[in-house]
Structures are given as structure tokens and as C-alpha cells.
Design a protein around this nucleic acid. Structure first.
Length: 974
RNA sequence: GGGGAUGUAGCUCAGCGGGAGAGCAGCGCCUUUGCAAGGCGAAGGCCACGGGUUCGAAUCCCGUCAUCUCCA
């Protein structure tokens, strides 16, 4: 436990903490006999005693206290000493689990171990897991920061037993760590155990008994609770069991409901009693609502909220007052100029900002950048909410990057991904704040319009639905809308807003984005595997798999199955799942698609075409396909062959993907990390983080760099090594991927591994030399999500096809242009310019011609009751020309003029009517006139009073229609 | 995945069934000038793309794409 007892002389480093050893001492003194009567102080006074020793208030601090980092480390060290393997925190993005938005508990990365579909080289594990809880009944984003205990992001300390130790050890260690290592007072700790209120599941007397045996444990502190508190289930079915929680009584001064009637006790309502640690004992498998079966192997899964235990050990009344948050809070305080007292008096915005800046920093470090879908959207909302609370503190300029710096400083040592991604974190925070400011600005403009209308109508309350529309459409949050309204002495109807939100939620809920859950037949195949292992047909590792070397294997059909049933024989046309003792077929992983191929009888009597590969359970790989001919029977000797040409195309695309990843880093920077990948035979698709569209030059450079790497004929070398080692060497690991302890790395290098061109963790199949890629061509660069760009590219055969097709097109173009291929672009440009000029000229000529003809026509103007009337049919005139003629007419007859011109342009008949301003006042409108004429042509017409158009398809009726203008006018003038 | 909004001159936008506009920037000329500026003029547009409705679509309808935004 050397780390916990740091020498006084080293206290300088400890100064980033908030509370001194003195406060630590004070806290525990409270548990001493007689404390309550002799030295009882409310928290505020305790703080005032402590404050002189606060490092930032100037007092020298020479004494030692336990920092958050040290608490985390003592936990890990303690269990490592008990032969646990330290497993680093998994990414916040759960690998291979589409049902989960974020890793939300320590056991997420071990879920498959409990389910039996994954195996680990260790049976005891300890870690501190990064978790996010942003939605659900326990945590609504809007509530985080309003109290002292909720977080979006938090750490979960945990120790695990996979079929190894059980209750006895787990409880003893928990007790030892809490009381001996961390020194918590034994008489203040309580343990809860399970007792079924329905009486159908046996009570956990074992755990209760073990608790009573712990040294110094008060036997009366064992309490029993029912299913809600003390029975843990992963899902409707699957592993489950009773759990035992450890609670602490912090004393009356932590009772936030003191004086009010409430349930004050373990699992009560106030904050005096806190749950510290949950130990889950997995001993059953639930196969239905009423059926529990004992598991052959029992497991332990524990979880202790890190921030909470730190707050208890540091003796503070808020998770946000632990040392790890102080840097972030200070960063905000430096900007607002608040004193510590002022900050505590208005703590909510500070808490929100500290929490959200931390969550966003960790998210971005794990590749979740602000965006408008899925996880990225959550990241955006968190940043925007922090920014919103910043404005409550008067912070107008982007400020979160400063808080992010503090977070990186506090957590970077234990979570190196923060330090490694410093720049992307700070950039993304800042960029998102700016983006938010922009949407708020435009939303505010719309809101102002609504408020002005409201004031005009003399009302005081803005319709909540309108406010919601503003939110849904322009992203203007309710609170901001309300604040702005209040500045003008107006209100926003909140109930209406909520109603609008609810409607919107229902309207949007229709499209479920749930992937298929999978795992339905996990149990079936686990059973099949066990049977085959028992019969000696499969080894302990299950199906042997080597997609790197075995393009063709000879083996008997171990099992045939369909719809979760074993079959002995199948017929042509049947869809069937085939289990072989070994296979070289690649199973989709890391973006590379599964292999296809065939399984044939050794004697040629039947064949199955394989089009899908599955891994339903640990150690089981099945080929899925259709029987082409014959009657395959279980046990038949067979030959399984991967479609080699297709596989080769895939390998070209996979190696090219690595080369492109490296080229993107070179051209765009380190932030351009993989965010998704598809490696198919005909193309590759690669998503990566990048805030803006690539320029054509950048795309060209990437393409060129990849082709240069291809031409350099570099070696592609796979290697197996320990994950830690590979990562320490700088191998690129991907987020959302699950890696075992031993990983496969792919090095692309000219000669030796020391001069690497590319180095990634990758389980995919690759070429031996880069030159085998052939040609690499980028087909498109587009947006996949905000902040994520997508490149599609082709190689080898696909690239040849593309080149051939493009080349043919350009040759045809060159031939048509009667120019050399290289001169096509220049030639096209010249032609375009010439065409534009010619068009302009033609238009000018047409107008000129029309005007000169029209000039002649102007002499034939009739006079109807003193009004100048020109009715004319002008073949071939278009609309533009007619408009100009109208101008010409009004130039000549600025008053008392009516002009109607009909034109036949192809099949189209156009009628234009123009009237001078003075006649409009007398009720003669061009629109009416155009309508009158057009109706006779079987169509409508209309327009402005001074100029209108109409038309029709029947040219033969035009003369008669035009002739009717005179009488129409006579009727109007009277 | 679903709902809403927006794509018009280099930029910011107006127009929202009848002849494509404004401000700013850029260009030319003029005036003025310590700096700033002012005046005049010309240029600049497949009104995102593809269908449809209509005599007529930037404008209405449908689809596609892109951007913004909300809900999952």
C-alpha cells in the first residue's frame, strides 16, 4: 500500500486536491465516541475550520491526504495483490454491442464472459471503467448538475471473478479494503443482503453469515431487502443472482432532509446513508419468468461509484467537491471572478459545466465527436448544455476548452487517451460552442419575430408549441427562449412546450434503429459445442480457425443445423448451417466482410454454396449456405474452399485501407482517425473524423501517397503480441473494437519493422506486399455525419474497371470534340465560353429584330374611345421578347395605352397584355385581359395589372381570340 | 431510423405562381482626401439536382442530395 502513504515532503503534488489531511481527520473524528456531543458542528462550520488549510487560500499545507488518483490506484493495487489482472477501461463506445449507446457499467466489457460466448486468459479481474449514463430512468440529462451526486460520465471501480472465488472472498476483501486500507469506521458500515419478498427465490443467508464473521462488523448491521434492491438481472433471461450492498452512515449532519419527515436509513430517502459498493453474486440462469437454474460456475461482479467513494474518503458533501473536479471548477471560477463562497452559493452551473466538460472530453477522446446522430448527438447536447449554463454565469465567449484542459490535467495520467487527443478535444469543444452560438443567434432572430407579433396582439404568454417548434427546428433551447422573453416582460408557456415535445417524441418514435439482438441461438450452439467436445470431436478451443493460411481444408461435416435444430441429412435447395472442426473462412470483423465459397463432398456427391459466416457462441463458427445439389449428411468427409479470387480482392482493399489511413494522417493530421470501415471485394469505404470537406487537392494527395506506397512494394507483416506492448509501440487501435490480451498487428514497412509506414491492430487478411494492390483510386469523398467524412475507393480489378470505363468516356468525348484527350478540358471550356457568347448574341439579335419589326407595327395602333390599342400576332417571339416589346410600347404611349401581342413559339401559344398606369386606375387590368384572351385558347392567364401573360396550346384559335380584345376593351371603357 | 427548417450573385439574405433583386465584397471610372469615405457604371445567376402540376415554377407538389435542428 506504499502509494497511499506518501511522505509529507512530497505533498507539493498533493496540492491539487481540495481538502487537507486535516479535513480528513475531522471527518473521522466525528465517528469517535462522544464526538457528537462534544464537538458537533454543522458542515458550514467544518468548512470554515478547514478553509485556512485550503491550498489556494494561502495556508501552507504540509500534511498528506488521499487524492482521487491515489484512491483509484489503491483499489487496483489491492485487488492485484489478490491475484487479479488489471484490465484497462474499455472504450465508452461498446465494442460489438449495438443495443448499447455507451458503456454504462463496469461489466459491459465482460458481458460475453458471463454469457459464455467469450473467454479470457484470467479468472480474476479488476478495473476502473469509464461509464456514461445520459438517458433512462436513473439519469435525465436535464437533472445532472442540479444535485451533488448525478453525473453523465463517471468511473466505476470493480473486481470480478469468472467462475473463480465467490462470496466469502469477495466480502472479506471488500471489508478489508474499506476498513483497513481506507480506514472507514467499522461501526458506520451496513451490509444489505437479499431476501425475496415473494418467497420464491431462496434468501442469501450465505452472504449474511459471511458478513457477520467479518472482524469488527456489527452483526445487527446486516439488513435484508427484496428484489428491487438486492437481486440483479442482466436481462429478461440470462445470468442473474443476489447482491450484497455496503452502505455507510455519514452522520446526521449529512442529512439533507433533516427536520422534515422522511425515511432516514439504509436505502432511505436522504443523503445521510450512502450506498458505496454493490457486490453481485451470479449463481442462477434465468430461462423464463418463473424458472431459475443454478449455474455450474458462479461469478462475482462488483461496482463501486468512484466519485462517491472519493467524496466519502475526502470527507466532502458533494461529488463535485472531490479533488479531481477542482481544476475544472477553478478554471470556470477564474473566468467568472466568483469567490469560492459565491461559487457554492450558485453551484449548479459550476457542477453542470464541470461534469459536462469531463464527459465531453472523454467522449471525444474515444472518437465520439459532436454531431447530429446517435452518440455524436449526445456529445453535442452535453457540450451545448454546458455552454448554456456558462451563459448563466455570464460567459459569452467559448470557454469549455479551458475546462477541458483542467480535465485532461486531472485525468490524463490514468487515461492516456485524453493526453493523446488533447488537440481534438479542445478543438471540438471550441468548435461546438461556436456552432451553438450561431444556432442560438439565428433562433433568437426567429423568436424575436414571434415576440413582436405577441406584443402587437397585446398578449403576454408565448404559445409553448411555437416555442417548441423553434427548438425542434432551430435548436433554440426552451430556457434561452424563456430568458429572452422575460427580458421583454413576456412569458413562455412551459406546459405547451412539454406537450409539443411529447407529440414530437411520439411522431419520431416510429422508426426504431434497433439492430438485431443476435445471440438467440447462442445457447443452442454452446450446447452443440459441449456435446462435440465431450465426444472428442472438438478440442477445448472449439472450432480451429485460421483465415490467414487455410484457403482450403479437408474435414468431416461435424454438424448440420437449421432453425436451432440439429439435422442428420439435408436436401438440395435447403438453407443450412454447417459446423466443421476447422475452417479458413473469414468471419466479418473489423469492417472486413465474411468470405464466401463452397463446401463439397470429398466424393463429389454434393455441394453447399456458403454465402454467410456466423460466430454464434465462443468457440463456434458456422458456415451458412444453400445446398446446390446432393444430400449432405452429418459425418460426410468434405472439402471447404474459400472463394479465392473474391478473397484476393478483399485483401487488396484491406491493405489499401491501411495505406489510406496512414496517408490521411499525413495529409490531414493525427485527428483523422478511423470512425468506421467497410472492406468488401468490390470497394472499400472508410469513415474518419475530420471537421470539414477535403479539398480536391487533399484528395488527390491522399490518392497519390497511397499509390506511391503501393509502387514502393513494401512488406505487409502480421505479428502477434501482447496488446499492451503493441499499444505502447504506437500501434493504431480503433474505438468500438474489442481486443483480447493478445492482438494481431499489421505492419507495413519498406524493409524492416523499425521504419514503419503503417502500424495497426487488425485481425483482417492482408496482402504480402503492397504492390499487389495494383492501383488505388478514390471514387468519392462525402459526409457521413457531422464531423465525419467518408471516402469510397477501389483497387485492383475494381480500379481497372473504373479506369477502363472512364477512359472510354473521355476518348469518346475527345473524338466528338475532335481534340486530343489531354486537351479535352481546355476545349470544353472554350466551347462553353463560345456557347454563352453566341447565346447572348442570338438573344440580342432576336430582341433587335423584334423591336425593329415592332416599330413598324406601332404605326398601326387603333384608337378605341381615346385609348391607344395595339393588337398583334408576332410569330416566334418568346416571353422575354414580349416583355421588352411591352416596354417599348409604353415608351411610345406612356398613357392611354393597351397592347396585346400573341405569339406562337413551337407548340406553345403565348399571350402578353400590357396596360399603362393611368388605365389601371380606370379598372383596366392587364391580368384580366390576359385571362380573357387565354380562356379562349383553352387555358388560363394572369399577372400584374400592368403586365400579364397567358397562353394555350391551340394556335388556330389565336386570331379569333386576339380579335375579341377590341370589344372587351370597349366594354370596359364606357 | 423519424419529424421540422434551409439550399437564390463571391458573402449575408429578400422575393414565395406572372419580366431574377438588395446590401456588402470584387472590378472600372469620377470626386474627395490626413485617414475614413462618397458618386457613377458595368460585370457577376442551370434560383441545389431530378420529376410533376400549370398557359406560365426560383415560387406549389413529389423524389434525391447537402447543410442546420429536434426526437429515438
Amino acid at each position: 500500500m506504499g502509494r497511499t502513504r506518501q511522505a509529507a515532503g512530497e505533498a507539493g503534488k498533493g496540492c491539487d486536491g481540495y481538502f487537507s489531511f486535516f479535513s480528513f481527520l475531522l471527518y473521522f473524528m466525528r465517528f469517535l465516541p462522544g464526538w457528537e456531543t462534544t464537538f458537533r458542528l454543522p458542515l458550514g462550520e467544518v468548512l470554515s475550520i478547514i478553509r485556512p488549510f485550503h491550498p489556494r487560500l494561502g495556508a501552507s499545507m504540509t500534511q498528506k491526504k488521499l487524492t482521487g488518483a491515489e484512491i483509484r490506484q489503491t483499489f487496483i493495487d489491492f485487488f492485484v495483490e489478490q491475484k487479479h489482472t488489471f484490465v484497462p477501461s474499455a472504450s465508452l463506445v461498446p465494442g460489438g454491442d449495438s443495443t448499447l449507446l455507451f458503456t454504462n457499467a463496469g461489466m459491459v466489457q465482460f458481458k460475453d464472459v458471463f454469457l459464455g460466448t467469450d473467454k479470457r486468459p484470467y479468472t480474476r479481474a479488476v478495473n476502473s471503467q469509464k461509464c456514461m449514463r445520459v438517458a433512462g430512468k436513473h439519469n435525465d440529462l436535464e437533472d445532472v448538475g442540479r444535485d451533488d451526486f448525478h453525473h453523465t460520465f463517471f468511473e466505476m471501480l470493480g473486481n470480478w471473478s469468472f467462475g473463480d472465488y465467490y462470496k466469502k472472498e469477495a466480502i472479506a476483501w471488500a471489508w478489508q479494503l474499506l476498513t483497513e486500507v481506507w480506514g472507514l469506521p467499522k461501526d458506520k458500515l451496513y451490509a444489505t443482503c437479499f431476501k425475496d419478498e415473494k418467497g420464491t427465490i431462496p434468501a442469501d443467508e450465505d452472504a449474511a453469515e459471511i458478513w457477520k464473521q467479518q472482524p469488527g462488523f456489527d452483526p445487527s448491521h446486516v439488513l435484508f431487502f427484496g428484489r428491487k434492491e438486492n437481486f440483479w438481472e442482466m436481462a429478461e433471461t440470462g445470468p442473474c443472482g443476489p447482491c450484497s450492498e455496503i452502505h455507510i452512515d455519514r452522520g446526521e449532519e449529512f442529512d439533507n432532509l433533516a427536520g422534515k419527515p422522511h425515511r432516514c436509513g439504509v436505502n432511505g430517502e436522504c443523503t445521510r446513508f450512502l450506498e458505496l459498493w454493490n457486490n453481485v453474486f451470479i449463481q442462477y440462469n434465468r430461462s423464463g419468468p418463473d424458472s431459475l437454474e443454478p449455474l455450474p460456475a458462479t461469478h462475482v461482479d462488483t461496482g463501486m461509484g468512484f466519485e462517491r467513494i472519493v467524496s466519502v474518503l475526502q470527507g466532502v458533501d458533494s461529488n463535485y467537491k472531490i479533488d479531481l473536479f477542482q481544476g475544472a471548477l477553478e478554471a470556470v471560477r477564474a473566468l467568472t471572478g466568483d469567490s469560492v463562497e459565491q461559487m457554492y452559493a450558485n453551484f449548479t452551473p459550476y457542477r453542470v459545466i464541470a461534469d459536462h466538460a469531463r464527459a465531453a472530453s472523454f467522449l471525444i477522446a474515444d472518437g465520439v465527436v459532436p454531431g447530429n446522430v446517435g452518440r455524436n448527438y449526445v456529445c453535442r447536447m452535453i457540450i451545448r448544455r454546458a455552454a448554456r449554463f456558462g451563459t448563466k454565469l455570464g460567459l459569452r465567449e467559448p470557454f469549455l476548452a479551458k475546462v477541458g484542459e483542467a480535465i485532461i490535467a486531472a485525468y490524463g495520467d490514468f487515461y492516456p487517451e485524453l493526453e493523446k487527443n488533447r488537440q481534438p478535444i479542445l478543438d471540438n469543444l471550441r468548435r461546438e460552442e461556436i456552432r451553438f452560438a450561431r444556432t442560438v443567434e439565428s433562433g433568437t432572430a426567429f423568436l424575436q419575430g414571434l415576440l413582436d407579433e405577441l406584443k402587437k396582439s397585446g398578449q403576454k404568454v408565448l404559445d409553448g408549441r411555437k416555442a417548441f417548434d423553434l427548438y425542434a427546428t432551430y435548436g433554440l433551447p426552451f430556457e434561452i427562449a424563456r430568458d429572452i422573453a422575460r427580458e421583454e416582460d413576456l412569458e413562455v408557456d412551459e406546459a405547451g412546450f412539454r406537450a409539443g415535445m411529447e407529440e414530437h417524441r411520439l411522431a419520431s418514435g416510429g422508426g426504431k434503429a434497433m439492430g438485431k439482438l443476435g445471440g438467440e441461438d447462442a445457447e443452442f450452439y454452446a450446447g452443440v459445442l459441449k456435446g462435440l467436445q465431450k465426444a472428442g470431436e472438438l478440442g477445448p478451443e472449439g472450432v480451429a480457425h485460421n483465415p490467414y493460411e487455410w484457403m482450403q481444408v479437408e474435414a468431416p461435416l461435424l454438424a448440420l443445423a437449421a432453425d436451432g435444430e440439429l439435422l442428420t441429412e439435408v436436401d438440395a435447395g435447403d438453407r443450412v448451417e454447417v459446423l466443421l472442426p476447422k475452417t479458413g473462412f473469414y468471419v466479418e470483423s473489423g469492417g472486413q466482410v465474411s468470405d464466401t465459397g463452397s463446401i463439397r463432398a470429398a466424393d463429389g456427391s454434393w455441394e453447399i454454396e456458403v454465402d454467410e459466416m456466423r460466430k454464434p457462441s465462443a468457440g463456434v463458427i458456422v458456415h451458412v449456405g444453400e445446398v446446390v445439389f446432393g444430400h449432405p449428411k452429418a459425418g460426410d468427409p468434405a472439402i471447404a474452399s474459400v472463394d479465392a479470387a473474391r478473397r484476393h480482392d478483399i485483401m487488396r482493399n484491406h491493405t489499401a485501407t491501411h495505406l489510406m489511413h496512414a496517408a490521411l494522417h499525413q495529409v490531414l493530421g493525427e485527428h483523422a482517425r478511423q470512425a468506421g470501415s467497410l472492406v468488401a471485394p468490390d470497394r472499400l469505404r472508410f469513415d474518419f473524423n475530420h471537421p470539414e470537406a477535403m479539398t480536391p487537392e487533399q484528395i488527390e494527395r491522399v490518392e497519390r501517397l497511397v499509390n506511391e506506397a503501393v509502387a514502393a512494394d513494401m512488406l505487409v507483416m502480421p505479428n502477434l503480441k501482447a496488446r499492451e506492448e503493441a499499444i505502447a509501440e504506437g500501434a493504431m487501435a480503433l474505438f468500438g473494437e474489442k481486443y483480447g490480451e493478445t492482438v494481431r498487428t499489421i505492419t507495413i514497412a519498406p524493409e524492416s519493422e523499425t521504419d514503419r509506414h503503417s502500424y495497426e491492430l487488425c485481425g483482417g487478411t492482408h496482402l504480402e506486399r503492397t504492390s499487389d494492390v495494383g492501383v488505388f483510386l478514390i471514387v468519392s469523398e462525402s459526409s457521413a455525419a457531422a464531423g465525419v467524412r467518408r471516402i469510397e475507393a477501389v483497387t485492383g480489378r475494381g480500379a481497372y474497371e473504373l479506369i477502363a470505363r472512364r477512359f472510354k468516356a473521355i476518348k469518346q468525348a475527345a473524338a466528338a470534340l475532335k481534340s486530343a484527350v489531354d486537351e479535352v478540358p481546355a476545349r470544353v471550356e472554350t466551347l462553353q465560353n463560345e456557347l454563352a457568347a453566341a447565346r447572348k448574341q442570338i438573344a440580342a439579335f432576336k430582341t433587335e429584330l423584334a423591336l425593329s419589326t415592332f416599330n413598324v407595327q406601332l404605326s398601326s395602333v387603333q384608337t378605341v374611345n381615346g385609348v391607344h390599342l395595339l393588337v398583334w400576332e408576332f410569330p416566334g417571339a418568346d416571353k422575354d421578347t414580349l416583355g421588352q416589346l411591352a416596354d417599348k410600347f409604353r415608351e411610345k404611349y406612356p398613357q392611354n395605352g393597351v397592347c396585346v401581342i400573341g405569339a406562337v413559339d413551337g407548340e406553345q401559344v403565348i399571350v402578353m397584355a400590357a396596360v399603362t398606369q393611368d388605365l389601371i386606375k380606370r379598372g383596366i387590368r392587364a391580368g384580366d385581359l390576359a385571362g380573357h384572351v387565354s380562356r379562349q385558347l383553352g387555358a388560363g392567364g394572369g399577372g400584374a395589372p400592368h403586365l400579364a401573360f397567358g397562353g394555350g396550346k391551340d394556335a388556330a384559335k389565336l386570331p379569333a381570340a386576339l380579335a375579341s380584345v377590341r370589344s372587351w376593351l370597349e366594354g370596359k371603357i364606357k
